[in-house]
Amino acid sequence: MKNYILAIFLVIGMVNANAQVKTSAQEVAPELVKQREELKTLIITNYLGIKNSLVVSDSKKTAATASEFSANFGKFKFKKLTLEEMNAATTARKSIKELADSIAIAPSINEQRKLMEKLSEKFWVIIDKVKPENMPLYQQKCPMMGTTWVSNEKKIENPYYPKNMLTCGEVIAEK
């Protein structure tokens, strides 16, 4: 009889423990989702900061924002990917971080722009993974030069040739 009563208490205790674990996980999940969305927003904001600094030809601001982008992008963890997709995304992240770090230490605005061309191409490939919900993003292209960049507006502001071709470009994709 004692064993029977003990077994009942153990089962009840396990049920209560499972209920508490599920409740805790359910409470934590929305907070983690919120933090992940905030990091995605920060990454996109940093990228756009690099682009916008190049539009106004501010190499110091470009360098500072590229450093922030690299640091925040390094914190980002890819989720729900196959092994092959994870390997590709990890390789892309490493390359994108290296490009951002190179932009941060580039000796001239022209060098920053050349590096940004490469960064933008690689970033667009994984944009679905880092794009925050409810934030439309556009891949834009200067048809004369073939360079691309990402924008959060359809309005064209060419970061590569702002003096001569500020409005030269077109939206070629949308996410």
Rank of each mutant, 00 (worst) to 15 (best):
S108C: 06
K60N: 15
I43Y: 01
Q140E: 10
K2C: 01
F123Y: 14
G49E: 00
A19Y: 09
D101Q: 12
E174R: 15
L32F: 11
F73Q: 07
A92Q: 11
K175M: 07
M116R: 04
T41A: 13
P143V: 14
L48I: 08
N158R: 01
Y47G: 02
F73P: 04
W124T: 02
N16A: 11
L99S: 11
S120I: 07
T45M: 05
F76E: 05
M1V: 09
I109H: 10
A100C: 08
I12Y: 15
E68Y: 05
I43H: 01
L6W: 12
Y160I: 02
A25E: 08
C168A: 09
F73G: 03
F123E: 11
K114V: 04
I44A: 02
V130G: 02
N52D: 12
Q139S: 01
L119G: 03
Q35L: 15
S70A: 14
G169A: 02
N87T: 13
K60V: 15
K155E: 09
I156E: 10
L115E: 08
S67V: 08
L83G: 14
Q139V: 02
S95W: 12
K61I: 02
N46C: 14
T147C: 04
L10D: 03
L166R: 09
L6I: 11
Q26M: 04
E170T: 07
E121W: 13
K94E: 02
S53G: 06
N46V: 09
E84G: 11
I8S: 05
S53Q: 07
M165G: 03
K60D: 15
A173P: 03
G49Y: 00
K163H: 04
E157W: 00
L48S: 09
T45S: 04
A106P: 09
K114F: 00
A29P: 00
A64Q: 02
C168I: 05
I126V: 09
E133M: 08
A63L: 13
A92D: 11
K131T: 11
L6M: 10
Y160Q: 04
N3P: 05
T91W: 07
G74R: 08
A63E: 13
F69A: 01
I127V: 15
I5H: 14
K141C: 02
N3G: 12
I50E: 00
K75T: 03
L10V: 03
N16I: 08
I50A: 03
P30Y: 06
N158L: 01
T41S: 13
W124P: 03
T41F: 09
K80G: 13
I103Q: 00
Y161V: 05
E98R: 09
E117H: 07
K40Q: 09
L83S: 11
P136L: 12
V130N: 04
V28F: 13
P159Y: 00
C168K: 00
V11R: 05
E98D: 13
T45A: 07
D58E: 09
A29I: 02
T147R: 02
V150I: 15
C168Y: 00
K122H: 13
K94W: 04
K60P: 13
K131M: 12
I5Q: 15
A104R: 01
R113F: 10
E174T: 12
T45L: 00
I50W: 00
K51H: 05
A17M: 12
D58F: 06
A19E: 03
I156A: 06
A104Q: 07
L6C: 08
T23H: 10
A88N: 06
